[in-house]
Amino acid sequence: MIKLIVGTKGTGKTKAMIEAINAVTKTTTGNVVVLEKSMKLTYDIDHAARLIDLDEYHITGYNMMYGFVAGVLAGNYDITELFVDGILKVGDHDLNGLGKFLDDVQAIAGENVNVTITISAALETLPEDVKKYL
């Protein structure tokens, strides 16, 4: 299942995601993984969550990000929660390609992994293939 946290810069998306991460680390029986560009969340999230810096792996574009997500999920079948902060930074702010990326991630995550993604954009600018995940 994919959940989107959408809003323009400064609307509290990352704060909402941090709260969700910290809440789920206390209740999940599986593993929590957080993917972000740079390590801004290092001191904000519970140590039980695995934080991965996408810059460290030179992830650029939705295709490379999909491959990385697939690898993370394939490498650990115990992941129940996956968080991605700032997906548009990875996808070079391409709103049109975001829908296909979300469809692909949904297909590999299935019903066993909850995926939460922040999108820094106004709700009305999102294409319909992205809005279906709201």
Rank of each mutant, 00 (worst) to 15 (best):
M1R: 13
K3A: 14
I5K: 12
G10T: 03
T11Y: 15
T11H: 12
G12Q: 03
G12K: 04
K13L: 11
A16F: 05
M17A: 07
I18Y: 04
I18V: 11
N22Q: 06
N22I: 02
A23H: 10
V24E: 13
K26G: 05
T29G: 14
T29M: 10
G30R: 08
N31S: 13
V32L: 14
L35W: 12
E36R: 03
K37Y: 09
M39Q: 13
K40Q: 11
K40W: 09
T42C: 10
I45P: 08
D46S: 13
A48N: 12
A49D: 03
Y57R: 01
H58L: 03
I59C: 00
Y62H: 03
M64S: 08
F68K: 00
F68T: 00
F68W: 00
V69R: 01
V69A: 08
G71V: 00
V72F: 00
D78P: 06
L82F: 06
V84P: 07
D85L: 07
G91L: 07
H93K: 09
D94N: 06
L98G: 04
D103N: 03
Q106G: 06
I108F: 10
I108Q: 13
I108A: 13
E111Y: 04
V113H: 01
V113Y: 02
V115T: 01
I117E: 12
S120C: 08
L126V: 05
E128I: 05
E128D: 15
D129H: 12
V130F: 07
K132H: 08
K132Q: 09
K132D: 10
Y133A: 13
